[in-house]
Simulated assay, not measured.
Amino acid sequence: MNATLDLLRTRRSVPPIQLAEPGPDGPTLDAILTVAARVPDHGKLAPWRFIVIEGAAQARIGEAIAAAYAADNPEADAARLDLERRRLGHAPTVVAVVSRAGPHVKIPEWEQVLSAGAAAMNLVVAANAAGFATAWLTEWFAYDRRVLDALGLAPTERLAGFVHIGRADAVPSDRPRPALADIVTRL
């Protein structure tokens, strides 16, 4: 095997609560995002974009998440609202991957959505290759319009997910993976 295949074979998500400082510095994050943007993109539409959420922005978006949760769950206690408030505050850096897929005369919307997913996966792999641990998550608030508005998403944009980036003291054990015989058909 080579280093790239070894990385892909051993890559493992780390829960955000287990991700700590330091996150990537500015130039390193820019390099990671540059790699994330190098995905198949039929028509060169760049049907995705990135929102970097760090520091005070994590607290601000956390307040929007907690407020949306409280509005929908008036019985929620302070501990639960604090949990919601900290959703994006565990890892030092969180990158929201936004899908801008939409109708196009030549490029099917499905291909654009897949391109956004590929950008998110490239982001994960690039951050891992740079020595960071990651988790790509959505959670309920990735589909909540109030939170999407707080993030500045247009009504036509959707969230492909949040990629949490930081350092991990330990990587969780691997989960069972599907057997190739169960997922591969050869014609």
Rank of each mutant, 00 (worst) to 15 (best):
Ile165Arg: 00
Leu159Arg: 05
Ala118Pro: 08
Arg145Lys: 13
Val184Gln: 12
Ala170Gln: 15
Arg158Cys: 11
Leu151Thr: 07
Asp25Gly: 12
Val171Ser: 02
Val147Ile: 10
Ala181Arg: 11
Leu19Pro: 03
Gln112Tyr: 07
Ile53Gln: 03
Ala126Gly: 13
Leu114Ala: 13
Val105Leu: 13
Glu109Leu: 13
Leu8Gln: 08
Pro27Ile: 07
Asp149Thr: 14
Leu81Asp: 10
Ala133Asp: 04
Pro27Trp: 10
Ala181Gln: 10
Arg9Tyr: 12
Ala64Asp: 10
Asn2Ser: 02
Asp72Gln: 15
Ala68Leu: 00
Ala119Leu: 09
Leu151Gln: 09
Ala168Phe: 02
Ala96Gln: 04
Ile32Asp: 01
Arg86Trp: 13
Glu54Val: 14
His164Pro: 12
Thr185Glu: 14
Val105Glu: 15
Gly62Tyr: 01
Ala31Phe: 04
Ala135Arg: 00
Ala126Ile: 07
Lys44Asp: 14
Pro155Trp: 09
Phe132Pro: 04
Ile65Asp: 04
Ile61Gln: 01
Asp149Trp: 08
Met121Asp: 04
Ala168Ser: 05
Arg175Met: 11
Ser99Val: 08
Val171Ile: 15
Ile65Met: 06
Thr156Ala: 14
Ala142Ile: 10
Phe162Tyr: 11
Ala96Ser: 04
Pro47His: 01
Ile165Cys: 06
Pro27Tyr: 08
Ala36Asn: 09
Glu139Lys: 09
Leu137His: 10
Gln18His: 15
Leu180Ser: 13
Ala20Gly: 07
His104Ser: 11
